[in-house]
Nucleic acid binder design. Structure first.
Lengths: 258, 258
DNA sequence: TTGCCTCTGTTGCAAGTACCACATTTTGAG
DNA sequence: CTCAAAATGTGGTACTTGCAACAGAGGCAA
């Protein structure tokens, strides 16, 4: 049984999808002429691609299915109240006129949103598009983006250009997220982002880590700091004792958002 | 003469758009039954909405135009086919392995999208998040963001940091948009963006300006180049003679997208 | 080779759609 | 109210699509 189906059918279907990427819709008759096959063949191709979820049929043609939301969107929606409390508690650390660096991450975007709403007269340097976008809603906040290679998953920049750029500044405070909170220090799932965080800390007089309780005792590839380098951890629940003792020993203030 | 025409036609068309937002496509017959009007009325509604760019016709129905997200400006939605043709024509200037700089603007984002879909092995330096975002869909393209102050209207960076950063590179080609095409050269509505464009041109061996016919003879604040500094203008219609002669005198190649 | 399966084209018809011209209703200004 | 423009419905014709059944072409294994 010839199960391979090796003919130019695949090329044809690939061509259909490609054409669909640059036109909102296609008609069967045009496709048939353009690809040199009969309309029935096109119809069968469309039915197969529809079964695979690659496109949607219309009467007489096909369209691309509505785009699936980026993965980052889903993550943004969980633990919203917790992040909001963390953001509110972090505001107490910021004074008008401050110079800040803010890292990427869902929680830091919340902090930035609160800053834009309740503070002002700030200058913020960031490598995250989301942070820059919400901050710029407040015209009294000057937002400076760091350069670097573009990370589409987090919509942020990273790499040597980012690190070198950040080294040219001296700010009052760095506000950073974390993927995991370990006794050895905050960790991040993305090693490239971790180097950016480290650079931000080096250019900041103080460092604040913001992270909700789900990050406790989760370990990831890159530890971007030790707790002795972190001045405050803002979170939404009391930490378990081993971790709390460790931070106390490192003079890291623990701020639990009410 | 009742020129307002404010009857329930607007409600009906709004309903069509709303239904379309939750279904990939609609059929005229179903709409006619659901809204209690004749198919001819629905057909006329769809024709009007198509003229407004709110949807795209298919045989027997309608679909939403691609990427009808709220953040996208109305400006992005007009002249879509023209920009698409311009983008396609611009591809011919790009070779695998090229180093590029791409400026902000609706048309340049289209060029970037086509580059991501049809080219590869490129390195692109840009100050526009839209460009970076669509390019990063292709993992063989390295995207580098320029630093600078953040412009929320265009979602791009600008200012001295951006200009200085771009000066540190030497690329094969700069691809730039324009708000207006004047005999003196391409102009832009945003003076800050114009300085970035100028910086890109200084770092590029060749400069290509992409702009649709609606930009012809429109003047804006900042002229960021003279035509003698531009190697190609990619547009979608033949230019009026005075402008065409001027470009010819400056050795600027005019590429009219078919 | 034979046999079977997949892919494709062809044919005919039913159903759906587009387009046009014209009649009718609705709307809003004067 | 009157009237003209806009909006909508209707009918007819020509065209397009969907569907199903059938037949030919080509590949692959026994």
């Amino acid at each position: 049984m010839g199960m391979t189906g090796r003919s130019n059918k695949q090329e044809r279907q690939a061509s259909i999808l490609k054409q669909l990427s640059r036109a909102p819709s296609l008609r069967i008759a045009e496709l048939a002429v353009g690809l040199g096959v009969s309309t029935e063949t096109i119809r069968r191709d469309l039915d197969e691609l529809t079964a695979l979820g690659r496109l949607n049929r219309t009467y007489g043609g096909a369209v691309l299915p509505p785009e699936a939301e980026p993965a980052v969107k889903e993550r943004e929606k969980i633990l919203l109240p917790e992040r909001e409390r963390i953001a509110q508690a972090t505001l107490g650390l910021i004074k008008p006129g401050n110079f800040l660096m803010i890292g990427s991450g869902a929680t830091t975007v919340h902090v930035a949103r609160r800053l834009a709403a309740d503070c002002g007269n700030l200058t913020v340097i960031t490598h995250a598009f989301g942070v820059a976008s919400v901050l710029s809603a407040n015209p009294t906040i000057t937002v400076i983006m760091a350069p670097g290679r573009f990370n589409p998953d987090e919509s942020c920049t990273y790499g040597g250009y980012a690190v070198a750029f950040l080294a040219g500044f001296q700010v009052d405070r760095a506000i950073l997220g974390a993927s995991g909170l370990m006794p050895g220090g905050p960790t991040d799932a993305d090693a490239e982002s971790a180097t950016v965080y480290t650079a931000m800390m080096s250019s900041a007089a103080a460092t604040t880590v913001v992270a909700d309780h789900s990050k406790v005792d989760r370990s990831f590839l890159a530890r971007y700091a030790t707790w002795s380098q972190v001045d405050q951890l803002v979170t939404d629940r009391e930490l378990p004792l081993p971790l709390a003792d460790r931070l106390a020993a490192c003079d890291t203030e623990i701020i639990v958002a009410p």
